[in-house]
């Protein structure tokens, strides 16, 4: 197809300038942290901004082992995928039920769930930690996973519901006439159709859980169990680590999210791989 741009050459340059400013604004904070992570504790106070005179990697060694960042990352890599899997299944089932099934109080229950999606964690934190303790799940991965799934599911359910609600009802009707069970309709017709949205909520779920702080702080009280986000929050603090070491810890903590992004970029970007005019 013809390549037409609505931008004049001047506009095109202006747009590029805006984009470059945005990119620089996004990357500068990262530069700040990366350059600090390569400086010695003695160099940083006198040279906080410029590139390190002689880059050192001690801070990384220190953060990774003494600061347990590797251990924390492994912990996150265990809890979060399990949490996301549970969350996707729960949101998928509930989203389908709300979006395409008929039952008493459907709307009221849905509104209740929607209402929950707005709840601040701090409002729940004290009671949630008490509940987890009553279930003897304090200091367990399961405890924190349950709290995450419970807390983040309403939002995922909401997204799945709107998605299913928008699907033509004829698809369900046709399947039903074929005599398929509801489980079958969900698993073999609806879920595959909803795959892009499932990928979306999985990513939202992954990020939400990976970055979660208040619940994990109260439930995972043992150092060896901490998540990477909690680890960072613990390292920063009143008598906390110096900026170079904290920076190294931050860079280590960035690795997994960045890798996930690189590996799953296609899904994260919802499969949009072409600009409109190139279609």
């Amino acid at each position: 197809m013809k390549k037409v741009s609505p931008f004049s050459p001047t506009a095109r340059i202006l747009v590029q300038i805006v984009m470059i400013i945005l990119v620089v604004a996004s990357l500068l904070p990262l530069y700040n942290v990366i350059s600090a992570s390569l400086k010695s504790i003695d160099e940083y106070p006198t040279n906080p901004v410029l590139l390190p005179k002689a880059p050192i990697f001690d801070n990384y060694k220190y953060a990774a082992f003494a600061g347990h960042l590797i251990r924390f990352t492994v912990n996150s890599l265990i809890y979060v995928p399990v949490g996301v899997a549970l969350y996707v299944v729960i949101c998928l089932m509930a989203g389908y039920a709300f979006g395409k099934m008929r039952f008493a109080f459907r709307r009221s229950i849905f509104l209740l769930v929607l209402f929950m999606s707005i709840f601040p964690q701090l409002l729940l934190a004290t009671q949630v930690s008490k509940l987890i303790s009553l279930m003897h799940l304090t200091n367990t991965g399961l405890g924190v996973i349950l709290s995450w799934v419970a807390y983040f599911s309403p939002f995922g359910t909401y997204i799945m519901t709107t998605y299913f609600a928008d699907m033509p009802y004829e698809l369900v009707e046709a399947a039903r006439i074929d005599g398929a069970s509801q489980v079958r309709i969900l698993v073999s017709i609806m879920a595959p159709l909803a795959l892009p949205m499932i990928a979306t909520i999985a990513i939202i779920g992954f990020q939400s859980m990976w970055n979660e702080l208040p619940f994990s702080m109260l439930i995972l009280q043992q150092e060896s169990l901490r998540t990477v986000t909690l680890g960072i929050a613990v390292l920063r603090g009143e008598y906390g680590l110096r900026v170079p070491i904290l920076s190294a810890a931050l860079v280590i903590a960035m690795i997994v999210p960045l890798l996930i992004f690189l590996l799953f970029q296609r899904y994260i970007t919802l499969g949009v791989t072409a600009g409109a005019m190139k279609g």
């Binding site: 299944v89 509930a94 008929r102 039952f103 769930v113 009671q127």
Partner: peptide, 24 residues
């Protein structure tokens, strides 16, 4: 209506919400 199926689909979500959100 779809009988019991919707409630089964919703059960895990609702149980979690009752415990971790409504109760608190």
């Amino acid at each position: 209506r779809d009988g019991a199926a919707p409630y089964v689909f919703l059960a895990p979500l609702l149980v979690l919400l009752a415990a971790f959100m409504i109760y608190p």
